[in-house]
Simulated assay, not measured.
Amino acid sequence: MLKAAIPVMVERGYGRIVNTASAAGMEGHALSSPYAAAKAGVIAMTKAVGKELAKTGVLVNAIAPALIGSGMLDQPWFDEATKKQLLDRIPMGRVGEPEEVAEMVFFLASPVLSFSTGAVFDLSGGRATY
């Protein structure tokens, strides 16, 4: 997607790219290293491409959600013990809502954002405060 979109955005002198990473990519997760590694790759790509495009008008950022009340929680491998273990790590003590993710993406994709690129925005209820 980046390969197709970036040239068009650079030619226009404007664009917003919002990648979806995960708190797992920032912290690592025991027993899910392939997922954590893939999301860490998204984070590194966001940082690198954000810097590469910094003077073009195209801003590249990412979100890093933790536990969000989405269809992912309904997967058979996502049992109640796993949900509880992850929820216990969230200081706010609750699962994030898809609407909260949408609001963050809306902001990052909007023209209101003008001085952030290559950044990763936390959506973890206080879990990943770095």
Rank of each mutant, 00 (worst) to 15 (best):
F78Q: 08
L113S: 14
F107P: 04
P65I: 01
A36Q: 01
K55W: 13
G125Y: 01
A109E: 09
L108P: 03
V120E: 01
M45R: 07
A66K: 00
G41L: 04
G50Q: 01
A23T: 11
E27L: 15
L113P: 09
R94F: 00
M45P: 10
V95F: 06
Q75S: 12
P91T: 09
G125D: 03
E80Y: 08
T46G: 07
G13A: 07
A48M: 06
F121M: 07
L123R: 00
F106C: 14
P98Y: 10
A23V: 13
L123P: 00
E52P: 07
I17P: 00
Q75K: 13
A54F: 09
Q85D: 12
V42T: 06
K3V: 12
S33L: 11
M45S: 07
T46A: 06
P34Y: 13
I6F: 05
A66N: 02
N61S: 09
Y130N: 14
A4K: 13
G96P: 03
G126W: 08
P98C: 02
G96I: 00
R12V: 06
Q85R: 15
G93F: 08
E27M: 11
I6E: 04
I68H: 02
I68S: 02
I63W: 01
S124A: 09
G50L: 04
G118T: 06
I90M: 02
Q75W: 09
V95I: 15
R94N: 02
A102E: 03
E99N: 13
G57C: 02
R89Q: 12
A48W: 06
E80Q: 13
A30E: 10
D88R: 03
R127T: 00
F115P: 12
T20N: 14
G69V: 00
L73W: 00
G25F: 03
P98R: 10
K84G: 07
E52W: 14
D88N: 10
G28P: 08
V112W: 14
A4D: 10
K39W: 08
V42Q: 00
Y14M: 11
A5Y: 00
P91R: 14
K84S: 09
G15E: 02
F78K: 07
R12M: 10
M92K: 05
P7V: 05
N61R: 11
M26R: 15
P98S: 05
K84F: 05
G15N: 07
A21D: 02
A62N: 04
F78R: 07
S32T: 13
S22D: 06
G41D: 01
